[in-house]
Amino acid sequence: MEQVLIVKLGALGDVIIAMPHIKQIMEYYSKAKEVWLLTAPEFASLFTEFPYLKIQSFPRRGLKSLAAPIQWIRSQSFQILFDLQGSDRSKTMVALSGANERYGLGSGFPYTHCPPNRGIVAGEVHSFSRLNRLLEAADLPIAPTSPYLGAGGAQYWVVRDWLAQKKLLGRDMILIHAGSSARWESKRWIEAHFITLATILEQQGLAVIWIGGAEDSSLNQKLAQVIGIDASEAFSLLELAALARQARFAITTDSAPMHIIAAAGTPVYALFGPTDWQRSHAVGQKERVLTHSVSCSPCYLPQCPTERAHQCLVALSPEKVLACIRNDGLL
Rank of each mutant, 00 (worst) to 15 (best):
N117A: 13
G205H: 09
D230N: 14
A270D: 01
A192Y: 04
I22L: 02
V289E: 05
P298K: 06
Q71G: 08
S45F: 03
L316E: 02
P141Y: 06
P116W: 00
A32D: 14
A323P: 04
Y28Q: 05
A137K: 15
K31F: 12
L243C: 03
I325L: 00
L12W: 01
E42N: 12
P41Q: 12
R160D: 12
M26P: 11
C299L: 09
P110A: 10
S30V: 14
L240Y: 10
S255E: 00
W277T: 00
C312Y: 06
S280E: 12
E185C: 03
S127Y: 08
F109G: 10
L46N: 00
R74Q: 15
G10A: 09
T306R: 12
A151L: 01
W162D: 10
N132T: 09
L5M: 04
Q221G: 02
Y300P: 08
G86F: 15
H193D: 07
D216S: 10
A122G: 01
Q85N: 13
I174P: 00
S217V: 04
L168V: 02
L81V: 07
N117C: 10
I73V: 15
N100W: 00
F128A: 12
A250P: 07
S236A: 08
T291E: 11
Q71L: 14
G86S: 11
Q85C: 13
